[in-house]
């Protein structure tokens, strides 16, 4: 009932390893938020529809409200906190969301970003319709999605450009995909 059946788990989140003891019934979303203090992952419905809690687990987008923390033992997890570079340079998606006004209240945004991030890895040159399909597992109540589609489109271009310039400059120069958070 209490801590009696807790299990120790070790997981890597955004490149950092954590070991913690959790009750088996604790949802991964709660483990991330309450145990690890990573509150960027939001909880919007806890029944697998809204997508706000989307993270990537071993490279795939999953709804963290539909995974138990114990099931993430030994898993590699990425959350919105792990999108920007350690020096604060924004990921192209983050930059594009800012530029294109792809968010209002920002509550669904972390989940949308994580879905979009995986989507662009799989489909680097998507059409608008494909983008809409790619983010259709994430509900947004503020934007009407149009600016989100614009932003993902812009991020795809940025990523492709970066990739191209990286190829051109070989490995002599590190090209940062984003820039520092400054208003």
């Amino acid at each position: 009932m209490t801590q009696s059946n807790s299990k120790e788990i070790t997981l890597t989140v955004n490149g950092k390893q954590y070991t913690t003891s959790v009750e088996p019934r604790m949802l991964l979303s709660d483990v991330l938020r309450d145990e690890l203090g990573l509150t960027g992952t939001h909880v919007g419905c806890e029944h697998g529809i809204c997508g706000a809690c989307t993270i990537t687990m071993d490279g795939r987008p999953v709804r963290s409200c539909l995974v138990f923390g114990v099931q993430a033992n030994q898993a590699e997890i990425r959350t919105v906190e792990g999108l920007a570079e350690p020096d604060g340079s924004l990921h192209p998606l983050q930059e594009a969301f800012w530029e294109k006004h792809g968010l209002q209240c920002g509550f669904c945004t972390p989940g949308v970003l994580m879905s979009a991030c995986h989507f662009l890895e799989q489909n680097p040159n998507p059409s608008r319709e494909e983008i809409r399909e790619g983010i259709s597992g994430n509900l947004c109540r503020c934007t009407g999605y149009q600016n989100i589609v614009d932003a993902v489109e812009m991020a795809a271009e940025m990523l492709n450009k970066n990739k191209k310039s990286e190829e051109e400059t070989s490995d002599l120069e590190i090209v940062h995909s984003g820039r520092k958070v400054e208003v």
Binding site: E81, L83, P110, V181
Partner: peptide, 10 residues
């Protein structure tokens, strides 16, 4: 408002 919200710092 955005820089905090897009980085999970909201």
């Amino acid at each position: 408002e955005d820089p905090r919200l897009i980085t999970g710092q909201g």
